[in-house]
């Protein structure tokens, strides 16, 4: 305990870092989800040209490491004259990046519904938007929930990369504290623990959703 006790105030600092991590991840997950749903819809229902455009987008996003993308946008953005606070710049990069993966989860959810569900909805005279809203989406979203949650976990962990472009969050906070205290082991153990808590809570929530989905089926 002797080795950890003097670091208590540093842990408090980490805690605030974790708060920032959570804030950044939450800010990114909302647009990522919306864009992910939109991309999935275009892929399933869109015209050929729109589908190709989305495919190209997914292909590019999947082929670039997030770290490279972050750095690239960090240097590129000022050149374009867009004056965006670094926090929001990073949030947008995370959102655009994860939307590509989320769209795959949603697309798979929609496509894994049997044709029979569409047939039943159509034969009851449901117009397309209604069919999607009350028959297809509720089922597709349940199917997509487990991969979606695991992407959220990934997103939380990916926020650790943003310290590379100078944003302050849990990982950055840890590095600062380590420089001061020269106790890397205790500090990064604390940071790891905080990351773990956030991700584990998400995973539990995912398990819960999964179990609920099974009840309906």
């Amino acid at each position: 305990m002797k080795t950890f006790a003097p670091l208590l105030h540093s842990y408090w600092y980490l805690f605030r870092g974790a708060g920032m991590t959570l804030l950044m991840a939450s800010a990114a997950v909302v647009p990522a989800t919306l864009l992910g749903v939109l991309l999935a819809l275009v892929q399933v229902f869109g015209r050929r040209a729109a589908r190709s455009a989305v495919l190209a987008y997914l292909f590019i996003m999947r082929g670039i490491p997030l770290l490279v993308l972050l750095t690239f946008v960090y240097y590129l953005l000022p050149l374009t004259g867009i004056d965006l606070p670094p926090f929001w710049g990073v949030v947008l990069v995370l959102a655009f990046y994860y939307a590509a993966f989320m769209s795959e989860a949603f697309r798979a959810g929609i496509l894994s519904l049997p044709q029979a569900q569409w047939d039943a909805a159509k034969s009851l005279g449901m117009p397309r938007y209604l069919m999607l809203r009350i028959v297809i989406f509720p089922q597709a979203l349940r199917l997509a929930a487990p991969p979606f949650i695991s992407l959220c976990v990934n997103l939380v962990k990916a926020t650790s990369l943003v310290s590379i472009v100078g944003l302050w969050e849990l990982t950055m906070a840890s590095r600062e504290v380590v420089e001061r205290t020269l106790a890397p082991f205790q500090i990064f153990l604390g940071a790891a623990f905080l990351y773990f808590c956030i991700c584990y809570a998400l995973a539990l929530y995912g398990k819960y959703l999964e179990r609920r989905a099974l009840v309906g089926h």
Binding site: Q117, D119, A120
Partner: peptide, 20 residues
């Protein structure tokens, strides 16, 4: 088409109820 389909009820071999 959706409006016209209202008038035709169809029951399938595999029931096709909405499970949720």
């Amino acid at each position: 088409l959706a409006a016209a389909r209202e008038h035709v009820g169809i029951v399938f071999q595999s029931y096709n109820l909405f499970p949720h």
